[in-house]
Computed example of a mutant assay.
Amino acid sequence: MSNVSQIIEERPSDIGNFLVGRLLPFKNKRSVGPFVFIDHMGPVQLSSKENFDIGPHPHIGLSTLTYLFEGAVMHRDSLGTEIEILPGQVNWMTAGKGIVHSERTPERLRNSDKNMHGLQIWVALPKELEQMEPSFHHVEAAQLPTWKEGNTMYRLVAGEIMGKKSAVPVYSPLYLLEIKTVEACEINLGEHLYGEAGLYILDGKIETEGQAFLPKQLLVAKNSKLCTFKMAENSTVYIFGGKPFDEPRRIYWNFVATTPELIENAKERWKNQEFDKVPGETGYIPLPEDFNNFKLKKENNDNENTAF
């Protein structure tokens, strides 16, 4: 019997002036451990007349994780943070009771050709922390545990696994592990994984139980303790997951919460512009019209209007 319970294909999603590949949430799989949202950004080449511009928008009840492979993004938020993120670094923004941020092409690159490629991830907060004070942490590439086994490179982007711990300050047991190969090899992580586990193929190919899987596919394990697979040469995969929460999470636009009341409150606060402002920004992204008749009692379908 296969240990792959689901195969999720990357789906295109328009987030304004940028097309991304959406992996989570999926209609039959809303989360993997505490991970509730994953977008694959790019790879895309932008001309000197094109820029990545996501204006001010709010979040509650989650932490966002930005991890770039190529390009650069200027992050600004309502805490007064203003920092450029580069490939290999991590931006970890915890919304808690509410934060507003924007993400744009840095000024130094706006009039030149540039590439964009990376992952944008949301991690739900534990129920007892979903109304915590917001915070922001920038983690340099050198602060992420990196090690080699044979010709296989490992990097722990977030969380704790294999006796390693990332500098990203997470709030529940989880892991986001990057694995890169030069030569084909077998990977056995079963003794190290816990909770729910997913595997995203960025480049190359993996094989497990006689089946081959290719880029832009996300595999969800039935049992994380049985996670063994073969990676082809020059492949890159991301293993992510952790302990799932007891309470389901509701997602409306950029809001994640355990109760409909928290989401309704956030919607009203944003409509009335009662969130703190982002210094240096004047505009904002309104609540999407597509959700005017949204009913919180019904399970939402894939959220195609999410700004991050």
Rank of each mutant, 00 (worst) to 15 (best):
I7Y: 01
P58E: 10
F255H: 07
K49P: 00
T228N: 09
T105V: 07
K225N: 05
L129D: 13
E196Y: 03
S78F: 14
D39G: 00
S102V: 02
V182S: 15
Q120N: 01
V157D: 06
L226I: 00
K205P: 01
E50C: 08
N303M: 10
R104M: 14
I54A: 12
G190E: 04
P244I: 07
L177A: 08
L125K: 13
N301W: 01
G283K: 11
G61Y: 05
K49Y: 13
F308G: 04
A184Y: 02
G195C: 03
Q89C: 07
K27S: 11
K271G: 01
Q217G: 05
L68V: 00
S13L: 04
A232Q: 04
V32Q: 11
H137C: 04
E10S: 15
E50L: 09
F52C: 09
D14G: 00
Q217R: 11
L177M: 04
K271A: 11
V237P: 01
K127C: 11
N91W: 05
V73R: 08
T181Y: 11
I187C: 02
L214N: 04
F294L: 09
S78G: 12
D302R: 13
G98M: 10
S13H: 00
V278F: 12
S2M: 12
H40W: 00
L129T: 07
E268I: 15
L262W: 10
V44H: 15
E107C: 01
L199V: 10
F245C: 10
E233M: 13
I187K: 06
I161L: 14
S63C: 06
K295C: 13
F69H: 10
A307W: 09
K297S: 15
E107M: 13
L218F: 14
P260G: 03
S5W: 06
E209P: 02
F35W: 04
Q143R: 07
N300G: 06
F245W: 08
V32W: 04
F213A: 05
